[in-house]
Design a protein around this nucleic acid. Structure first.
Lengths: 169, 169
DNA sequence: ACCTGAACACCGTTCAAGT
DNA sequence: ACCTGAACACCGTTCAAGT
């Protein structure tokens, strides 16, 4: 008699193990044990550890999305950054998981695309939109641990710099 | 007959192994083999892997420092960011090593302190100096892989935002 | 001061085979 | 579709002992 899971079960349990143990102590073997399954069984659902953690990152971001009515481009950028920040604070070591997936180009790509699009709509030229989105994204990555007020202050600094460059053209 | 090394030899060889194999394949055991020594010998020089890699990070930053005559606070901040960027590009995976050491609070603390001091001298209040230094530091971390022109553009965005907040007070 | 020898408690991944 | 069993090639770290 064997235990049987679906892909979604595995991701959900992976997040639970993350909360219980932290990323440092997260392993394919630990997750398998937690699921009551042999390590090799995980490779039926995912090609490897990186892919599994990328799926975790995407799931955390998806959970954090909220329907939004957005008026100005600045408020849209703020919203994406705050959503991202909240996703990164939603579970233990979520920030590392999301940043790592993004760095490998294997997940967590959506926030960047949304911000780049918003900047283009605002009238930024393609270079500025790309660099600006990247700057904001990494700003959010870097300041997960800050006070909300520090986060807002830093975000304002970057947005002011962007606004100055958009108005000038 | 045994091979004998000093702390500095170990760090230098650690950097060489990083260049040859990359961080992914860097291990205490691999470094030990490279030095012609048993893994346990490394624990005579360093308490563990994290401490050894923190020493690597500090060495890479120290190598990248150049004597500078600086006039404006903006040019000083630019200089620190460029030095940091250069250190992060000086060897394979140097960026990850430096960022990880900084994140653990175990090394690579100097650039941040220099930038905070520069901002204070420029007349920023303590909160702005702290947050600004952090923002710039993580900006540099985040944009190692960018074109020099993208790096300069993004840096300008952040510096403009800072300048606006310093002038206003 | 610097190193060996030997062990402990782990890893990620592969693959033939089972149901 | 999902899992087992068994193996391969690794990890970081500790510690008594050697020179």
């Amino acid at each position: 008699m064997t235990v049987r899971h679906r892909r979604g079960d595995v991701v959900a349990r992976a997040i639970a193990v993350l909360d219980e143990r932290g990323l440092e102590d997260w392993s394919m073997r630990r997750l398998a044990a937690d699921l009551g399954v042999r390590p090799s069984a995980l490779y039926h659902h995912f090609p490897g550890k990186d892919a599994l953690l990328a799926a975790v990152a995407d799931e955390l971001l998806a959970r954090g999305r909220r329907p939004a009515e957005v008026v100005t481009w600045e408020s849209e950028l703020r919203l994406v950054c705050v959503e991202l920040r909240d996703a990164m604070r939603s579970h233990r070591d979520a920030a590392e998981v999301i940043a790592a997936a993004h760095a490998r180009g294997v997940g967590a790509q959506e926030p960047q695309r949304r911000m780049e699009a918003a900047l283009l709509r605002a009238g930024a030229d393609p270079d500025l939109a790309r660099v600006g989105a990247n700057t904001l994204l990494h700003f959010a990555f870097a300041h997960v641990a800050d006070d909300p007020s520090d986060f807002t202050l830093g975000l304002g600094i970057v947005l002011d710099g962007l606004a100055a460059r958009i108005d000038v053209r």
